[in-house]
Design a protein around this nucleic acid. Sequence first.
DNA 1: CTAGACCTTGACACCGGCGTCAAGGCCAGC
DNA 2: GCTGGCCTTGACGCCGGTGTCAAGGTCTAG
Lengths: 132, 132
Amino acid sequence: MRIGELAEHAGVSTRSLRYYEAQGLLRARRAANGYRDYGDEDLRIVREIRSLLDLGFGLEEIRPFVECLRDGHETGDRCADSIAVYRHKIAELDACIAHLSEVRQRVSGQLQRAIEVRTTDPRCEFSPCVSE
Amino acid sequence: MRIGELAEHAGVSTRSLRYYEAQGLLRARRAANGYRDYGDEDLRIVREIRSLLDLGFGLEEIRPFVECLRDGHETGDRCADSIAVYRHKIAELDACIAHLSEVRQRVSGQLQRAIEVRTTDPRCEFSPCVSE
DNA sequence: CTAGACCTTGACACCGGCGTCAAGGCCAGC
DNA sequence: GCTGGCCTTGACGCCGGTGTCAAGGTCTAG
């Protein structure tokens, strides 16, 4: 399978595939003419990469999953390192969500206060202050 | 007030101040020798910029707040444009939080499934599968 | 006069996953 | 042999706020 075919099967650009290779996540045999040559396992690897990227993982975090697949496991998350990445990501997500929630509270409070001030501001008595 | 003093009072780097100016958020009179010269109003503007940046606003979003302050209002959020930015940001935060929550659910599900598979995988009968 | 603390503009680096263009090699069909 | 579609490597751009370095001007205290 050449790079264009793999790209089409996996639904990614050839640029991305070369990038994954540059990052050490993908390896390719070379045909006699220098073209990259991929097998079915590589398609599974790329699919694993894509689904994790879509979930918000970075390529560095995805590395253990790829190694796990390459070790012959049926899925990339069957190895301890991958599990650890899952746990780490969940903690990260929790922290991020908590942070955003607090920010949301703060902004919401600012908004309330700003609206109240505007409705009582004498300079607003002849202009529409609330509706917008 | 020169740029170093303003930076110290506001707790930011001079680099940042020059950047805010390049983005059109800060304006400076120039002394005879070419040095930037700031007033107290500029300090308030920089403080506004910082607190909004810390909340996760981008400089473009902060622009209305600065203009509001420059229009002579007591706070940067007393103008309709600023209020609109608040609302927009809250919606953005809600969307982001919702997205992250869903991702968290998905990752959490993957983790559960992966752990279950590992505990029943025959290859694990001689190795510690769960504890890590 | 000079050291040194301030100021000036300009420009590169970072991060991460690509898009995109350039210049060139390989190969199948006409 | 030529066209066109695939492939190769290399390199720049993006985004956003800032660190950092360079090369030079300004001013003050000793």
